[in-house]
Design a protein around this nucleic acid. Structure first.
Lengths: 215, 215
DNA sequence: ACCTGAACACCGTTCAAGT
DNA sequence: ACCTGAACACCGTTCAAGT
């Protein structure tokens, strides 16, 4: 007996490790396989395509982020926490961001949607409003992470000249040498926690919606 | 005389053509070069790296989108039009979306920021508020385009079985076979023009801010 | 059922060389 | 200054073959 046969989960696990080390953009069938000391072709029995591996890995990533807040919270706090949870999970692994729009929506993502809509319907919103609210929040979260990721790329590029060893192993991709062109006020503004900007606006708008329905 | 020497603009032009035909994700140094019947290595004199070519192409794309609305509009309409302009430009070339967060912020992007902040400051917002508003709008636009792009991938994937010729030349990337798992209500909700969801919430919140400052 | 090795058609980028 | 050709170290994926 050479070794226990590898299953889907083992590959997803290895993929998540590779992603944590070098980022989604540098994951390859070959480096995931070599982490398991296996031929790259072994994976094609479980994942017909690299995208299938990525989709399964994203599912696992979402599942582990456990982004659904405590059900006893009032809806405003619940929504805020859910949004922050998504935002922070994505900030921990910024390299997912570019794929968010192109990978299929999986079961885990649908479960989060369900929880969100259910919570808001219980709070008195219509199903229509709840869905709108969900997408508005997702939009703000994704947008905030994009801005954050854009800032991140710029600061690590600046740090690259000083410290090259770490950035060589972690990379995170692009060079982003556009720093000089950005006005100072904009620079410092980007340093803020991006989610604090759009989210309160959304929540205020939702409160107004609920108020209006009551009268 | 063999041929007029190629300059940066010629390469950017060719890159935009390649992007229009096969999408940003399938642009390569080699296919841009071959469109100009030139060795791939010729480009490295003008663009030290593929990312430099992409950044220059994005600048040109933004410049051509001409997203800054008529200055005589009241600020609410101005903001709405600017946001729609960005949204529609990006929807025309969805393949830019994944790179938005990782490419450097260029002069064109800064010009748009400036116009936006100036307009809102004139309308009575503080500089701080104007910047916040700008980023909130950007967040919503990017988020909306991401959702739109996610929907697009799904419907073209479904159309692929029926009509393979066009999708083979345009591609747009990923397979996205997650259709079956998505509830019908969610499906039909995604068909809406995504920007109509979050944007009004942001504008309402901004109106409230201005109202509050006046009292 | 699961894995391997060799091969194909691609990448970005470097380097030495040409005009 | 601008361009070329060959080469290096990678990709995703296919295919025929092994256990």
């Amino acid at each position: 007996m050479t070794r226990a046969a590898l299953n889907r989960d083992a590959y997803v696990e290895a993929a998540l490790e590779v992603i944590a080390e070098v980022g989604v953009d540098k994951l390859s069938m070959r480096n995931v396989a070599s982490r398991l000391s296996v031929s790259p072709m072994a994976m094609y029995k479980h994942f017909p395509t690299k995208d299938d591996l990525l989709a399964a890995s994203l599912e696992a990533f979402i599942a582990r982020a456990s982004v659904v807040p405590d059900d006893t919270l009032p809806w405003e706090r619940w929504v805020e926490q859910a949004a922050r949870g998504m935002y922070e999970a994505l900030c921990r692994e910024l390299s997912w961001v570019p794929l968010l729009g192109s990978l299929p929506v999986g079961q885990q993502a649908i479960a989060v949607t369900d929880a969100f809509v259910t919570k808001l319907c219980e709070a008195g919103f219509t199903l229509e409003q709840s869905l709108q609210a969900y997408f508005a929040v997702i939009q703000v979260v994704v947008g905030a992470v994009c801005l954050r990721s854009s800032l991140d790329a710029r600061t690590t590029a600046a740090a690259d000249s000083a410290n090259q060893t770490r950035s060589a192993t972690r990379g995170e991709g692009r060079s982003n040498t556009g720093g000089p062109g950005i006005p100072g006020e904009l620079q410092s503004f980007l340093k803020r926690d991006q989610i604090t900007i759009g989210l309160p606006m959304i929540i205020d708008a939702l409160k107004a919606q609920l108020e209006e329905a009551r009268t």
